[in-house]
Amino acid sequence: DYFTVDMEKGAKGFGFSIRGGREYKMDLYVLRLAEDGPAIRNGRMRVGDQIIEINGESTRDMTHARAIELIKSGGRRVRLLLKR
């Protein structure tokens, strides 16, 4: 199942961390959800969800650093296409 999650940044960021990336020879996944962060309050994202797109850009062969950069580059908002 594919689904989109739109979030607005909180005081401590978006409230999730990721693992994976090209340099680890793996796809990008949601690693952790911060307690009471925007990701957990949104209610749609879960640990283990695969991140397919960040702000419309495919994560295929994307490095971990580039993924972080893209998440931050959207300013106060981020849109993720996830797969569960």
Results as ranks from 00 to 15, higher is better:
52 I>G: 04
8 E>L: 05
43 G>R: 09
14 F>D: 02
11 A>C: 07
21 G>D: 02
53 E>K: 10
24 Y>D: 15
63 T>I: 04
46 R>N: 14
55 N>T: 01
70 L>P: 00
74 G>Q: 08
68 I>S: 13
67 A>G: 06
78 V>S: 04
23 E>H: 03
53 E>H: 05
74 G>R: 12
32 R>D: 14
61 D>S: 10
11 A>V: 07
41 R>E: 10
27 D>N: 10
26 M>F: 03
77 R>T: 13
45 M>C: 05
55 N>H: 04
45 M>W: 01
29 Y>A: 11
26 M>D: 15
2 Y>D: 05
63 T>E: 10
17 S>M: 07
29 Y>H: 09
38 P>C: 08
53 E>M: 07
31 L>K: 10
29 Y>N: 07
17 S>R: 13
58 S>A: 12
16 F>M: 07
25 K>V: 07
20 G>Y: 07
60 R>T: 14
34 A>Q: 15
35 E>P: 14
7 M>W: 05
78 V>P: 01
44 R>P: 05
41 R>Y: 07
84 R>M: 04
61 D>G: 08
22 R>K: 15
8 E>I: 15
9 K>Q: 09
75 G>A: 09
52 I>K: 10
41 R>H: 11
50 Q>R: 13
33 L>S: 03
63 T>P: 07
61 D>R: 08
14 F>T: 06
53 E>L: 06
42 N>P: 06
6 D>M: 05
77 R>I: 11
14 F>R: 02
13 G>R: 03
60 R>Q: 11
32 R>C: 14
44 R>C: 12
59 T>H: 02
9 K>I: 15
65 A>D: 13
48 G>C: 04
68 I>M: 11
34 A>F: 11
80 L>N: 00
24 Y>R: 14
12 K>F: 06
8 E>Y: 03
22 R>Q: 15
15 G>A: 02
49 D>S: 02
49 D>F: 00
79 R>F: 06
23 E>A: 03
34 A>I: 10
54 I>M: 03
79 R>E: 15
75 G>M: 06
7 M>I: 15
23 E>V: 02
40 I>S: 14
9 K>H: 03
40 I>E: 13
78 V>H: 01
21 G>E: 02
58 S>V: 09
30 V>D: 00
33 L>T: 05
24 Y>I: 08
58 S>Y: 07
44 R>N: 14
80 L>F: 05
63 T>W: 04
4 T>G: 06
46 R>Y: 07
68 I>A: 13
76 R>D: 09
35 E>K: 09
77 R>D: 06
75 G>F: 03
54 I>R: 00
13 G>A: 04
65 A>K: 13
16 F>Q: 00
51 I>W: 01
49 D>M: 03
61 D>I: 08
31 L>P: 04
83 K>C: 12
53 E>T: 09
29 Y>W: 10
46 R>W: 08
38 P>E: 12
26 M>N: 06
66 R>G: 08
57 E>V: 11
8 E>S: 14
3 F>M: 14
23 E>C: 02
77 R>S: 14
59 T>M: 04
78 V>G: 02
10 G>Y: 05
45 M>P: 03
12 K>L: 06
65 A>N: 10
11 A>T: 04
16 F>N: 00
73 S>W: 10
61 D>T: 08
35 E>C: 10
53 E>W: 05
56 G>S: 11
2 Y>R: 08
83 K>N: 12
28 L>W: 03
42 N>C: 08
62 M>T: 06
17 S>A: 13
36 D>R: 08
36 D>L: 05
50 Q>E: 14
12 K>W: 05
82 L>N: 02
61 D>W: 05
80 L>Y: 01
48 G>S: 05
15 G>Q: 03
65 A>V: 11
58 S>Q: 07
23 E>L: 02
27 D>G: 12
77 R>Y: 13
30 V>A: 02
51 I>N: 01
15 G>L: 01
81 L>F: 06
28 L>S: 01
69 E>N: 11
38 P>R: 06
15 G>N: 03
78 V>Y: 01
29 Y>C: 11
48 G>F: 04
73 S>A: 14
31 L>Q: 15
37 G>P: 05
11 A>W: 08
18 I>C: 05
28 L>Q: 02
72 K>E: 13
73 S>N: 13
12 K>I: 05
84 R>G: 14
19 R>W: 04
57 E>M: 09
34 A>Y: 15
33 L>P: 03
35 E>V: 07
54 I>W: 01
47 V>R: 07
20 G>A: 02
24 Y>K: 15
71 I>C: 09
4 T>A: 04
12 K>Q: 12
84 R>Q: 14
83 K>Y: 09
44 R>Y: 15
42 N>D: 13
22 R>D: 08
83 K>W: 14
27 D>L: 06
63 T>K: 11
66 R>H: 09
50 Q>G: 07
32 R>H: 11
79 R>Y: 13
79 R>K: 14
64 H>M: 08
42 N>M: 10
6 D>R: 06
61 D>E: 12
63 T>S: 11
37 G>H: 12
62 M>I: 11
52 I>S: 08
52 I>H: 10
73 S>M: 12
17 S>L: 08
12 K>P: 06
68 I>L: 15
